[in-house]
Amino acid sequence: MGVMASMLEISGLRKSYHNLVAVDGVSFRAGQGETVGLLGPNGAGKTTTVSIIAGLIRPDAGEVRIAGRAISSDTDPAKQSIGLVPQDLGLYDQLSARENLRLFGALYKMSGAPLRHAMDEALDLVGLSERAKDRVKEFSGGMKRRLNLAAALLHDPQLLLLDEPTVGVDPQSRNAIFDNLESLKKRGKTLLYTTHYMEEAERLCDRLVIIDHGKIIADDTLQGLHRRFCAQNLLTVELEDGELSIDELLIDGLSIDALRQVPGVESVERRGHSLRIGVRDLARDSAAILQWLAERGQHVQHFASERTSLETVFLTLTGRSLRD
């Protein structure tokens, strides 16, 4: 794939609140038509980054360029290029779906036939044409999420900022939203998609920016990340009933840190009564781990391996799970 023209360029963004540094030197770009996933656990700085891009927050340092232009004021026409889908529903419950859209279209100076056409198209895309006259408060959570997306599309923005757009929706609505986003991708829209759901990022994103504690810790395509962590596989080890529990294992002096010292072990995470261990060489390192456990009197009840995932990538990079 050739280098795409930049739709979004962020360089050296920094924002702090009193002593808390929310965003610390964030830089990345999104090409025209590209879908970039901004991944990180809660509080990593995703929403702050999106808010700065949308012009809601002024950064302490750094710059945001939309299609090569920096946004200089609240009324900068460059904001026409952005469609924001906020994490909290940006809708008026007391108004109908159509009234909501009419307002949000008017904010971008749309009126008359073009606005009506845009509203029809957006409602059609998210499958809410039949409910256009119903008040939003009568909608299900999934329908509200879909309308939340539609409201950002009216002015035909080239860059869509999607801040966890599937939070709290049922799987069916989530799939519907994914279908909508894939449709927008096909139309050449640039999407910046923040989430802490790995499966969403894997399904939708061309490239992933992983953020933690306000800093970017990885920025690569999905394939690139897999390549970087290709040697890593994940072992799930469950100890036999009646044997020492994980807590006892730790009390026994066999700490997770000790297990990390075993040759070939890249990462260790405790999940309930199981250990999830990242290894480079599945055959060689698995044998070494099993032997290590056996030498310490531990019997394995269940043992499984799986291919590396984004979850594992994040775990490897940060030493903790995305949902922590």
Binding site: D74, L89, L91, F104, L107
Partner: peptide
Amino acid sequence: RQLGVWKRLRAAPISR
């Protein structure tokens, strides 16, 4: 301000 709608309004190219 506690709702997403405020962010949507602020994201639009309109003055304070």
